[in-house]
Computed example of a mutant assay.
Amino acid sequence: MNDLDLLRGAWDEPAPPARAAREAARAALLDRAAASKETIVPPTTVPPATETPAAAARRTRRVRLPKAGVRLAAVGVLAAAIAAGVTVVQGSGGTDEHGRPRSAVPGVPAGPVANASEALERAARAAESRPFTPPRPDQWIFTEFRGRKGSTPNGPLSRDPGKIRVTRHWQRADGKKAALIEKGRLEILGTMPTTPPSDYPSLAAMPTEPGALLAWAYRGLGGLGETAEGRYSTTYTMLGAVLRDNVLPPKVEAALYRAIKRIPGVRLERGVDAAGRPALALGRLTEGWLSEQLLIDPKTYTYLGERSVAVKDHTSRGDDGSLTYRKGDLGILSVRLKAAVVDKPGQTAP
């Protein structure tokens, strides 16, 4: 049994698409392929989001930015359906009486997604359409993830498929407290300011115009934004972390997807199934060796998770030592199982 089999056990097997849906999707994909100017890059095998050691687990979660050439965090994306030998990425709520794809989200087109820009725009429109009630200051944001551990901090994930873990975290909406399960016990922790912010008032105040949101992100990068590539790479990681760790106002979530759309180098990758659920994989190559991917549900266009994979051998050298990745090593593989507003820490459903 490998790591994908273990992760896949967390979900029921999805029902196969109807024959009419497969045929319609295949025809649409071939039509798009003939006209598309954007290349769909081949799939890459990517890693799970791992928490760094026990000490880091006690802090409020934050995005970890790269230093000294060592990539400390990465953002990722999941999978797509395979029909008749052709990889098809399709947001579908079934088919109509003519066998044509029907959207599962009102106002969002159905059928195959042609490129990263279209996928991110669908995710933005879907976010805008979802009902939302802002949390009270005394409520908590609960998130639950399933991923695989690494053997060393920031290094490749262990190849042992048994090193799967579930991480649960609570952040009070006002940002003043956090909580997690440690050694089977719920622990309430203090918090510190984070980059990006993790308290709901700061998140709700983020710009909702994509250009302004990118400018906001660039201002927070410090020395990491001194080069164009450093600015793009770190902002991609930062915005992905905001999507990953929070329950967001619809306009803010939509702006995040549209801002990511404007970051150069983000491409729709051929999907891979990393957790028993198909997903859209939106990837960006960082430092020429690490493919970082953001994972989006192809039906509802909600955030699913992240992963990263080395596309070639690489050794990173930094203040804390050297880390070696071999081609195909995973650095992150994380699937978000739940994200909800709850009334108290320890609660896992509204």
Rank of each mutant, 00 (worst) to 15 (best):
R307T: 08
P66L: 05
D245A: 09
R125S: 12
S291L: 04
P201N: 04
G271N: 05
A212Y: 01
K149L: 04
T44H: 00
I260S: 10
A217G: 05
T286W: 03
Y236M: 07
A204T: 09
S92E: 06
K183H: 04
R62H: 03
L330E: 03
E51G: 05
D138R: 12
R26W: 04
D245K: 09
T324P: 10
R19G: 12
P197T: 11
L180C: 00
P112V: 15
G265S: 00
P161H: 14
G150Y: 11
R244N: 09
T235Y: 01
R71F: 06
G331P: 06
L224V: 05
R125Y: 13
T237S: 11
R19Q: 13
A79C: 11
R22D: 07
P106M: 12
G223I: 08
Q347G: 02
M206A: 13
R307P: 07
L72D: 05
D5A: 04
R64P: 05
L304D: 00
L213K: 07
L243N: 00
R136W: 06
D5K: 08
L221M: 01
D273K: 01
A178Y: 02
A18W: 10
G85S: 09
V311I: 02
E287A: 15
Q293T: 05
A116W: 03
W140V: 15
G184N: 10
T348F: 02
E287P: 12
T87V: 14
A84H: 07
M192R: 09
A124R: 05
E253M: 03
D138V: 00
K67M: 11
A126V: 14
A340D: 14
Y325G: 13
E209K: 03
I164Q: 10
G288R: 09
P134E: 02
Y232E: 15
P48Y: 06
P137Q: 01
G318S: 00
T95L: 08
A179C: 00
A81W: 15
G85I: 07
G162Y: 02
A54M: 13
G94H: 13
T227R: 02
G223D: 12
A215S: 04
E269H: 04
G94N: 13
R336L: 04
A68Y: 07
P249G: 11
I188F: 01
A204F: 10
A15N: 06
L30Q: 06
A56N: 03
P161I: 13
S198I: 05
T45H: 06
R267F: 09
E51W: 05
P278I: 03
K177W: 12
R277D: 14
G147Y: 09
V113E: 12
A35E: 00
A33D: 14
A205V: 03
T315F: 07
S202M: 14
R102L: 12
P193Y: 04
R336M: 07
L214H: 08
R270T: 15
P350A: 11
R336Y: 00
G271M: 02
V89P: 04
A119W: 12
S129F: 13
A10V: 15
E23F: 02
G107C: 01
V108L: 11
